[in-house]
Structures are given as structure tokens and as C-alpha cells.
């Protein structure tokens, strides 16, 4: 207890009780004056001209600002303001280097005043065991430890640890209609080959990650869905989550070959890091940094010809994290 108290006292002494240097009275000590700059040109005149030039440019800025519709208006504004600041800086430099006297002062340490008290403090510090070495090592340890903690902290972004359920929630269930941005239900016969469409769950918040889809039509003979996705297409129309499984950008590019034997295969591409997914094989990754396939939604065509979901996604939607495959998507 007394040790802790002693520690506190000594730390406080270190921080607050250090004696400040007394201010020097004029003429008290010898002054060493750096000699003035060599004479030979009129520094005052140069500085004055520079300041005037700066003022002129600043007024020029106001004038240019008032005269709208000049050609290269922005550039003239920038030039006027820039030159004004440059002249001002140059004038200040001339003033500081040539006109203001520059002197170096020197003083000795003053006599110790309260010798007895100082000795007492030295004794307290010694008894507390707070040696210079220990204090240094302690401070170094605190810096190192905190830095390590700071470096480890972003690991929390590898994924949620506690409330994961909401990441598996989607607005899709059997029978949910697909609508476009204007809430118009999508008809199967409107979906053309070599084109791509953005669709949303009817009645859902369009801003939510699992709401949005990218819909394309492929020829049936192009489709090569894996067993897990068998029957997910509706007459060649396939729907995938529009959210890239890498970093959660929107899949905004569709590689639609005009002439397939020579052109590359159809692919859904994310513009952020060029993750490329194959829509004909259930959204498998063919290129880029995405770590898992694009999430696919099973479709069906209702008797009126509208596109509807035939269930939920095959995998959780959105960017991947450590626990993304722990559960399946829920409604």
C-alpha cells in the first residue's frame, strides 16, 4: 500500500514538480547575436514589393471571381490565389531571413533552491523501487502491448461472433415474385438472351443485401448445373444474388459472348475486383478473388408467366466471413 502511494507520489513529482527555467531578464546575460545578413540589397524593398504583389493577386482573385464566364475560369482563380499565397510566402521568407534579428542565447543552470526537499524526494523514489530502468521498460512494454492490441483489433472484422442469425435472413420464400426497380413484376418472356436484368423480392426493402438478384437467360443446352442446383433454372432463366461473395459489391457486368465458339463463355463479373462467376454452372468462381460460388436462387414460372422464387437461396448471401457456411439461409 505504502509502496503504491510512494509510486504515485514519485510519478506526480516527475510530471508536475519539475522546476521550470526562470525567465531571463533583459541584459542579465551575455547575448550572442547572429550577424545581420550582408548588406548590398534592400531587403525591405524586396519584401514590400512581394507583399504588394500578393495583395494585387488577391484582388485579382476577387475580380476573376466577379467576372463569371471567363474562359478557363477555374484555372484563373487557382492561378490568382496560388500566386498571391506564393508572393506572401516569399515576402515572409525574405522578412524572416534578412530583416528580423536572429540571436542565440545561452544560460547556465540556476542554483538549486530547496536542497532538503530534493533529497527527500530522491529518497522516496529510491524506496519505491521505481528505478529509471524499470520505468523505461514499463513504458516500452505498455507501448508494445497496446500496439499489438491495435494490430489484432481488425481481426474482429473477420466476421460477426455473436449475432449471426440476421446474416442468414433473406426475404425470399417459395412464391415470392421477382420485380424490377419500378416494382413491376418480371415476366419470363421479357427475359432475353445475352442481356441481364436486376430484380428484387416483391415487397422487400431493396436496400437489403439479400433482396437483389441478377437474372440472365441461357440456352438450355448451355446449362450445366451441378447436382445441388439441379432444376434451379426456369426454362433457361437463372437468378443469382447480385452481391459478390468476395467483398459485397454489386455484380454489374455481364460477359455475354456474341459468338460462343471463339468468344469467352458467359460470365457474371463484379467490377470491384473482377471476380468472375459462371452462370451456367451454378455460379462457380472462374476468376478473381472470390472464395465461394455466387449464391443461386431457384426459379419457377407461374401460370400467368411471372417469375417466382421456388424456395430460398442455396447458400448464405453476401460477402464471406469465417462462419458463412455454419447455417443455411432462412426466411
Amino acid at each position: 500500500m505504502s509502496r503504491a502511494k510512494a509510486l504515485l507520489v514519485s510519478a506526480a513529482t516527475l510530471v508536475f514538480a519539475r522546476r521550470r527555467r526562470p525567465t531571463l531578464k533583459p541584459g542579465e546575460r551575455e547575448r550572442i547575436v547572429v550577424p545581420e545578413a550582408p548588406a548590398g540589397y534592400d531587403a525591405e524593398l524586396v519584401a514590400i514589393w512581394l507583399f504588394l504583389a500578393s495583395a494585387a493577386c488577391a484582388i485579382g482573385f476577387v475580380v476573376v471571381y466577379a467576372l463569371d464566364r471567363l474562359p478557363a475560369h477555374t484555372q484563373l482563380l487557382g492561378l490568382a490565389l496560388g500566386l498571391s499565397l506564393a508572393f506572401l510566402a516569399a515576402g515572409l521568407v525574405v522578412m524572416a531571413k534578412r530583416l528580423v534579428p536572429n540571436e542565440e542565447l545561452e544560460e547556465d543552470y540556476p542554483e538549486q533552491e530547496h536542497t532538503a526537499e530534493q533529497e527527500r524526494i530522491a529518497q522516496v523514489v529510491e524506496e519505491s523501487g521505481l528505478t529509471r530502468r524499470r520505468l523505461l521498460l514499463g513504458a516500452l512494454g505498455a507501448a508494445g502491448g497496446s500496439l499489438g492490441l491495435a494490430l489484432l483489433a481488425p481481426a474482429a472484422s473477420l466476421g460477426p461472433a455473436i449475432h449471426m442469425a440476421r446474416f442468414y435472413l433473406t426475404p425470399w420464400r417459395r412464391g415470392t415474385r421477382l420485380v424490377d426497380e419500378q416494382n413491376r413484376p418480371l415476366r419470363a418472356d421479357e427475359i432475353e438472351e445475352k442481356n441481364f436484368y436486376t430484380a428484387f423480392a416483391e415487397g422487400a426493402d431493396k436496400e437489403r443485401l439479400p433482396s437483389s438478384l441478377v437474372v440472365v437467360r441461357l440456352r438450355r443446352d448451355q446449362l450445366d448445373l451441378p447436382p445441388g442446383n439441379a432444376g434451379f433454372d426456369a426454362d433457361g432463366i437463372v437468378a443469382y444474388s447480385k452481391i459478390c461473395t468476395h467483398a459485397g459489391c454489386a455484380i454489374a457486368l455481364y460477359r455475354a459472348p456474341l459468338f460462343e465458339p471463339t468468344d469467352p463463355k458467359p460470365a457474371l463479373v463484379c467490377p470491384c475486383h473482377y471476380s468472375t462467376f459462371d452462370p451456367s454452372s451454378g455460379g462457380t468462381v472462374t476468376f478473381g478473388p472470390a472464395g465461394r460460388k455466387l449464391t443461386m436462387l431457384p426459379l419457377e414460372i407461374d401460370p400467368k408467366g411471372f417469375l417466382r422464387a421456388r424456395g430460398n437461396f442455396d447458400e448464405p448471401v453476401g460477402p464471406s466471413w469465417w462462419g458463412v457456411r455454419l447455417k443455411g439461409p432462412t426466411t
Binding site: 460477359r255 455475354a256 456474341l258 469467352p264 473482377y274
Partner: peptide, 29 residues
Amino acid sequence: LSGGVAPPLEEATSTQIAEAIRIGPYIMP
């Protein structure tokens, strides 16, 4: 993009732009 180049449109004439939109040349939708 993976598998192709999206050309710059500096030399594209108005007609060519309108045509390309309808054709979708190479891998363009």
C-alpha cells in the same frame, strides 16, 4: 475485364454507338 477488352469510344460515331448497343459485339451484352 476477364476475357476481353472494353474498347474506348473516342472514335465511335453516333451510328456505331447506336449499333453496338443493339448488337452487343464480342462479349458485350
